[in-house]
Design a protein around this nucleic acid. Sequence first.
DNA 1: GCATACAAGATTGTTGACAATCCTACAAAG
DNA 2: CTTTGTAGGATTGTCAACAATCTTGTATGC
Lengths: 251, 251
Amino acid sequence: MNRVLDSAERLLAASGLARASRALTSSLPEQIATRLSERIVAGAYAPGQRIMEQALATEFAVSRGPIREALRLLERDGLVAILARRGAIVTNPSIAEVKEIFDIRAMLNGLRDRLIAEDPQRAKVLAALEPEVARLTRLAREGKQGQEYVEIVWTLNRVLTEACANARLKHILDSLARQTLRYSQLGLSTPERRRQSVQHWQKLLEAIRKGDGATAERIARERVTDSRDAAIRALQEAPQPVSAAKKRGPA
Amino acid sequence: MNRVLDSAERLLAASGLARASRALTSSLPEQIATRLSERIVAGAYAPGQRIMEQALATEFAVSRGPIREALRLLERDGLVAILARRGAIVTNPSIAEVKEIFDIRAMLNGLRDRLIAEDPQRAKVLAALEPEVARLTRLAREGKQGQEYVEIVWTLNRVLTEACANARLKHILDSLARQTLRYSQLGLSTPERRRQSVQHWQKLLEAIRKGDGATAERIARERVTDSRDAAIRALQEAPQPVSAAKKRGPA
DNA sequence: GCATACAAGATTGTTGACAATCCTACAAAG
DNA sequence: CTTTGTAGGATTGTCAACAATCTTGTATGC
């Protein structure tokens, strides 16, 4: 339908977030939550739009009970806000809130990568990361544009988060990643930024290889902080980043 | 009824966590969740104990719907685990999981205190912190034992978290604090540890006063890491820290 | 012309009942 | 004596309807 929307959907698939956290568990509310989160991230529901329970219940051919639970799950992930007696509306994070989320991610990505660097069994993770970083390097050298770059970066992040020994950290990072998925494309827009991103990843791999947790943490943190600043700059220039349309009423 | 239980209840009240996050919103499921979380933290439900929906519905004189929602809220906070078709059981975090939570808190408390130190309007927070730290210093000098010490530390943490400009960070920290409330008393057991804790707080205040975000972050992180190690040591010595009884069946 | 009050419709919160699944106890076979 | 299969009760998951609240459109007053 729409180019931006398509790329967002591909990004979601590449990120593996939907599958990673819920789809296989086969609980009805979780399945519904997964499908709804895909729509929100893809921009099918505009920020600020109200989501009615009965409409979804009819669409998914279930009762309102599972729908309600699914909406609470989305609230937990920050994709909708639920107001008492007024239902769920798609969140529209302000620039300040996006910055907040990135600040938290900077700290926790730092912890994640430090833990991995200090893990005696990190060789396996490295084996998964190395070919991806090699692809990234090649793409950057060839000056290639496009979606592929973003997808590789998401894969790298997913591999690192999956490998994380701290289950609760993994959970929080997944949740935060879903919340910033809508803005993740903004961080790699210019060729210079991509070149710097590649350098960051190479240095991170080096630090993990050496088992240097402190360096791994510092690099991860810098990387997210850079993404944060880039995303904020992009948001300030274009206040409506993903969804062009501003539909508020029912579809 | 039981001394340990009493002190846990006082601690919960002093921490202000229940009130801070839910009680005033007056939604029925949230009220129920608050009361249940008090019971879990106080040890009225033993770890591993199964919680049945119908029993709670009868007790609170509501239908099972709000009870279900309340249990999902507790799951979000990590106080119960919900298994498909098997309901909610009170979580019994392993030592490894407690360490995980403390590791996350170390990072995020660091972010919190750095943000506060870099906040131009930090004077107001300082004004609230200073008398408490003074009380702490006095207690330590007098070599006083007892609950008061723990309560002051909780107040300090609550003031800092409340003052945090990052709303999402505040939310995550509240949630993590609830999860470790059961173990927070373990960190300050010996007089030496308390003296060191006082020093940490004094240095933290100093850093905030100067606007030295990096130092504030480092100190906060050290403090949580120390608490973590102390809590783990205590847990290894006494595997059943809060609730003495090991009731698994219905009460 | 604009703001306010009211009424009808729509939407969420809650309830009680039904269906599907799980756990326990007991019996039968190896 | 241990293990496997089965039946009953118990518990969670889902549904449809009712009550309480909110939103929207309209009319009225200034």
